[in-house]
Design a protein around this nucleic acid. Sequence first.
DNA 1: CTGAATTTGTGAATTTTTTCACAAACTATT
DNA 2: AATAGTTTGTGAAAAAATTCACAAATTCAG
Lengths: 207, 207
Amino acid sequence: MTSRLKIPRKSIYRLSVYSRCLNRLLDNHVETVSSDTLAKAAGVKPAQLRKDLTYLGNFGRRGLGYNVAELWQRINSTMGTNRLLPVVLVGVGNLGSALLSYQGFAKEGFEIIAAFDAEPERRRHRQSAIPIYDMNRLGAFLKSHKVKLAIIAVPAEAAQEVVNRLVSHGIQGILNFSPLLLQSPTDVMVNNVNLAIELENLAYFVR
Amino acid sequence: MTSRLKIPRKSIYRLSVYSRCLNRLLDNHVETVSSDTLAKAAGVKPAQLRKDLTYLGNFGRRGLGYNVAELWQRINSTMGTNRLLPVVLVGVGNLGSALLSYQGFAKEGFEIIAAFDAEPERRRHRQSAIPIYDMNRLGAFLKSHKVKLAIIAVPAEAAQEVVNRLVSHGIQGILNFSPLLLQSPTDVMVNNVNLAIELENLAYFVR
DNA sequence: CTGAATTTGTGAATTTTTTCACAAACTATT
DNA sequence: AATAGTTTGTGAAAAAATTCACAAATTCAG
């Protein structure tokens, strides 16, 4: 089974989840885990877990399960989580500055190496180690640091313009927090996180 | 076609998106819109838009399209976005305090009426209009205010305990920002927002 | 009023995703 | 070494979601 099989997007999401469950098992010095146990921890069905794992090859042992360390290793090398990836943040308002301080990204192998904002007073006020630059330095920075990923946390009305600039300077993946559908070339991937929609969705099912 | 047809979760998500697109059309005083135009704005195929709308009944006009105001009205009344819904926030760290200041929720009909945190110094430091209470007041507050929705932005290790308390006091929907799968009764809905996984996902497809 | 042009609503076809179910492979025990 | 008990890997089945494609309804222009 060749490693360069196209893995469905949903499986990729779940692989991230599995990886986090494995972290906990590693912490507890658990050596092997069955698809049944891991699936329960990840909130999926065992058959689905096994099917997802076939994209990484066959390395479970029948009658025993998976070696936790090996499974972790395989998932993370497939996901490319092994190397530390640089990210830039555009927009240092409420949400943006929270993301700057958020420890979760660093824990998972991402480093926000710089932030950008058009407002001078936002650029001053921070005591974090991460530099905050004016928007006009964006292009040069991206070029010299070869950054591929960006997080956008600017107001809706500025978002499309920011996307255009990011794309023109070689950004290939964008995590978008602005509540708007953004136009982008097909080879640039945009993941939208819309907090209001998530709440709205909950509200509907709650009644 | 009865209104109490079960609408698939994915359609519910998209209806939220359509509603936002309609907002912009309303702002621009556009009176009617075709499935083709609206679908393009929402980033879906026209047939899918029309199929989603059939859950709300038949009210498009062939040859013309949909009345923007009516469509907006129907979507929002189905989604229950018309009334203002109270929400509590648990955890006022980096992410939590950003969510407190985030204007996006209020814009979409949600009001964070109170926040809770176990750390006294976090409860002091804020100048927002939203009160921040100690965790031991959570139960009484939920009971007296009949809140149904909660946002969790506490560290992973505290999350499950918080869920248990929320559930025991009648919370029915939880928006969870902690990077952990939470156990909850089936009649309590949990939507997970895992920022690190979103970035990881982008990173994979970017290479 | 007529005919060309739109656009909806929707069964049917297609594609994607999930789940089932079981043979094959392996472990553990005695 | 034989047997009972697990657990994987995976075709095949089922379910879910998306897309097609077209008749029916309606608009609009002349």
